[in-house]
């Protein structure tokens, strides 16, 4: 790091890195709080998540500007360019994850008005926790430049997919049992889908980290577990 090139560019990159890590921290919090607000039926916490999304969006904006400025001024090449491009992609994914968390919080505000659907809160919470753990490890992998940890995250997405499959079937069953469950179950299903998408985005981020560290994009040999597109009925 102390060679002659480390200079203005490195300082710029560090500023951007700090911003992205800060953004990551906010998104981690958003997932935790969104899941908690659902589990505890806490409307105020849901409101906190919705407000926090503004800060996440603002940070993305700032990262985009800083990155554009750095590219324009320093004209980075090879690994340096890769570092900037990675940051841009990470920021975009984080912003999307933040949006999903906000959407969960919005639906929570609606759901608390309805009778709870037994057991599904806990399952959604477990799923959210898994994704949050994946995001934490991805951010850690990014900060430490640890491609192995990122690769491990990539493999874990399958578990989230499986949890989503199980919930999908569960909601179908609930809805067939009693049509009064349909409204609540539709909201819960969208929440589950949101969390599943968060898992996918986190996996993309992990792939970006691998690309940043190794210079090679990992191949498609990733286990996939979402099979609900083939489900025709609950049996």
């Amino acid at each position: 790091m102390n060679d002659h090139i480390s200079s203005a560019y490195d300082r710029d990159l560090e500023v951007i890195t700090t911003l992205i890590v800060k953004m990551g921290g906010l998104v981690e919090d958003a997932i935790t709080n969104a899941a908690r607000s659902l589990g505890d039926r806490d409307v105020e916490l849901a409101e906190v998540v919705r407000k926090a999304d503004k800060a996440i969006d603002a940070l993305e904006e700032q990262i985009n500007e800083e990155a554009a400025r750095t590219i324009a001024l320093r004209a980075p090449v090879s690994k340096d360019l890769r570092a900037i491009l990675t940051v841009l992609r990470l920021a975009a994914s984080l912003e999307r994850i933040g949006d999903y968390a906000k959407n969960i919080a919005k639906r929570t505000s609606v759901l608390v008005e309805m009778a709870p659907v037994s057991g599904s809160d806990a399952a959604l919470r477990r799923m959210a926790r898994e994704v949050e753990g994946m995001l934490k490890d991805t951010l850690d992998a990014y900060v430490r430049g640890d491609a192995r940890l990122a690769e491990e995250v990539r493999q874990r997405d399958q578990e989230v997919d499986q949890m989503y499959n199980a919930l999908f079937r569960e909601f179908l069953t609930f809805m067939m049992e009693d049509p009064r469950n349909i409204t609540a179950c539709m909201h819960l299903h969208f929440m589950a889908k949101n969390i599943e998408r968060m898992g996918d985005l986190t996996t993309n981020m992990a792939e970006q980290v691998i690309y940043l560290v190794t210079g090679v994009m990992p191949d498609e040999a990733r286990p996939k577990g979402d099979r609900t597109s083939y489900v025709s009925d609950a049996r």
Binding site: T17, T18, V21, K22, G24, G25, E28, D29, L139, R144
Partner: peptide, 20 residues
């Protein structure tokens, strides 16, 4: 938090918004 943190920016090491 892991080793070799000295010299790093505190945000990269701590990350959680409350603390920062």
């Amino acid at each position: 938090l892991g080793r070799d943190l000295t010299g790093k920016h505190h945000i990269t090491a701590l990350r959680q918004p409350g603390v920062i």
